[in-house]
Every structure is written in structure tokens, then in C-alpha cells.
Design a protein around this nucleic acid. Structure first.
Lengths: 168, 168
DNA sequence: ATTAATTTTCAGAAAATTTTGAAAGTTCGA
DNA sequence: TCGAACTTTCAAAATTTTCTGAAAATTAAT
């Protein structure tokens, strides 16, 4: 198989996976494209490669930067901007997990907190089941949250360790 | 706040969270509804509560059963079918994680395997970056996979323990 | 200050996904 | 075997999401 075909395949697959996890196809594809590109790419190159419009490219590249997994590179003497993906998959995964937790999960959990203050004069079975469910979800989420923080911290330690080694 | 309002809020929130993670709104809402319901519910009750059509109810309840987090209950003497959600949130989470891995992640990873066999006569930088990326993703996925299996196993042990205790 | 290169925005178009509802299918009691 | 109660299916409609492309904004060189 040719390298270019393999890349195309990879980009398609990554796009599908993204879609299934609530990430828009194009964003996932741009990410895939940058992940397997040795050099930073310009908006024009991305447009051409994925056959998408300038506007689409711009929006999704920006969002990838918001997620902290793609950065803007300026080459001296060039007017154009180039984009480079974080290549360390572990870091990418940690960033995504951390961001999703922060953006999507935490707000919902905060909202759940307020739902526990219900009129419960009757203290009937329905109310009990409701409060128990909310409480269990919160407990679970807190556990999971600690787990994630643990992973992230682990990552930071490892990273620091590696960095320090570089400077001997 | 009234119990019914709190339930409605919860159902809405759960629906939003579902959407963001690539699960359709109705499916997440039905799940939420059943989670906080003390009794199993019939299709008619679900339709009425969420104001959705019979077809929609049927499809999404079926999918929840496919995921193994809702079960069909038959009450003696009743013609209707009732639906009951697994209430143990840890079990629910494990099921979802396991299923998503199996259905969505593993097929993509299998596909990636084949992409490593590219014509690499030149063994140039682009090809190296590509192969390295794919390899890293696979390594990462294998790690994550082991982690998940560990969690699931942990769960099973805990569950078995609890069950055994019940029978003293 | 002017112009050319480039990026950003966003209203409307296109595409993808979800939902409806009526018809077909199934099940079960009489 | 019939028919009432209930469930399932699926084509078409509704909704939601994504994408386009041209205009506006920005940037930088002359």
C-alpha cells in the first residue's frame, strides 16, 4: 500500500471514531492529518488535502487549538500560518480527557447538586430512588474524577522526569 | 423544588450529556427516566412522560437493552412489557465503557494494523512519522485496554464478593 | 496611505441524524 | 381461527449539525 493511501485511510478512520464520540468529523480528520504529517501544515494545504472549505478549516483548526492539541507555528519570512499537532499520544489523550471533564461533565454534576433539594415531606419511594441515583452518580463521578487527576499527575511526573533527564 | 421538576431537569441534563458524547438525546433521556423511576415503566408511560412517538420509544429502548443497561420485565397477568434500568452506576459505567471499546475502538484499531504495511522503499521521514504515530496509538490503546479490563475485573470481583455475602 | 496577502466571520445551503406515525407483524386469549 | 392488544418496522418529515463561500477584518510590506 502506498503511503498516501494509508494516510487517507487513517484520516477516514479517525473521522469515524470522532463522530461516534461526539467530535465532528472534520475536526477529527484535520487532527489525524496533522498527526501523521512530519511538517506543520498551512490552512491551504489542509483545505486541499481534505477537500474542505477555508471557513471549515479555520473553525476546526481553531477548535483543535482550544483543546490544546494543535499549535500555531510561524515560519520566519512566511506570511502564512502553519499548524502542528502534539505528537505524544499520551499527552493528547490526557488533554482530551481533562477538557471533556471540565467542559461537559463538571457543569452537569454541578447542576445535579441542586436537584437533591426536593420537597420530600412524604419521603416516599420515588423520592428516595431519585436522591439515591443522583447521589450515586455524584459519588461515581468523584471517584472517576480522582482517577483522571491521578493519571494526569502521573503524566506530569513522568514528563518532568524525562525533561530533567534531558538537562542531565 | 418538586420531585417531578427535579426529575425533568435530570432527564434534560442527561440528554445533553449524552448528545455531547455521541449518544442520541432520546436514548439518554429514556435511560435517565428509567434510572430515577422506582418501578419498571411501559412503553406507553415512557412515550407520555417524554412526549415522544411510539416508534422512537421502541427503537431507543431496544438499543438500551442492546447495551445491557436496561432489561425487559414481564409482569404476570399483564400483556404490556415493562422496562427497568440497571441501578448500580458502577456497573452501568463498566458496561458502557466495555461496549464502546468493543464496538467502536477495537474495529478501528484492527484497521490501523493493516496500514503499517506500506511501501517504504524510500524510508523517508513522512513514512517514519506515519508508522510511528500508528504504532504509538496502538501502544496507547493497548495500555488503555488493559486498564479497562482491570477495572471490569475489579468490578466483577467486588460484585462476586457482595453476592457471596448475600448468601452468607 | 495603499495595496495585496491572509485570516475570520456568519447567513444560508447542504448533509446527517433523529423522529414520526401509520402499516405490518406478532402474540395470546377465547 | 379470529381479533384485540401490543410491538416492530421503515419511508418520509422534521430537526440538528456541519459546511460553504463571499464579504469583512486583519496584517504587513512598500
Amino acid at each position: 500500500m502506498k503511503l498516501d493511501d494509508a494516510k487517507k485511510q487513517f484520516i477516514q478512520n479517525w473521522g469515524v471514531l470522532g463522530t461516534q464520540w461526539g467530535i465532528n468529523r472534520t475536526m477529527a480528520q484535520i487532527h489525524a492529518l496533522l498527526l501523521v504529517s512530519a511538517e506543520p501544515m498551512s490552512a491551504d494545504e489542509i483545505m486541499q488535502e481534505l477537500m474542505i472549505s477555508r471557513g471549515n478549516t479555520n473553525m476546526n483548526v481553531r477548535e483543535l487549538m482550544d483543546w490544546g492539541i494543535v499549535e500555531k507555528i510561524l515560519k520566519p519570512g512566511e506570511r502564512k500560518e502553519f499548524f502542528l499537532a502534539e505528537k505524544d499520544i499520551w499527552k493528547v489523550a490526557m488533554r482530551i480527557i481533562r477538557e471533556r471533564k471540565r467542559r461537559e461533565v463538571e457543569p452537569i454534576l454541578d447542576a445535579l447538586n441542586q436537584l437533591k433539594e426536593i420537597d420530600n415531606a412524604k419521603s416516599d419511594k420515588e423520592a428516595k430512588v431519585f436522591i439515591d441515583t443522583i447521589t450515586d452518580i455524584q459519588k461515581f463521578a468523584n471517584q472517576a474524577s480522582k482517577g483522571v487527576d491521578g493519571l494526569v499527575k502521573m503524566d506530569e511526573h513522568w514528563f518532568t522526569g524525562t525533561l530533567l533527564k534531558l538537562f542531565k
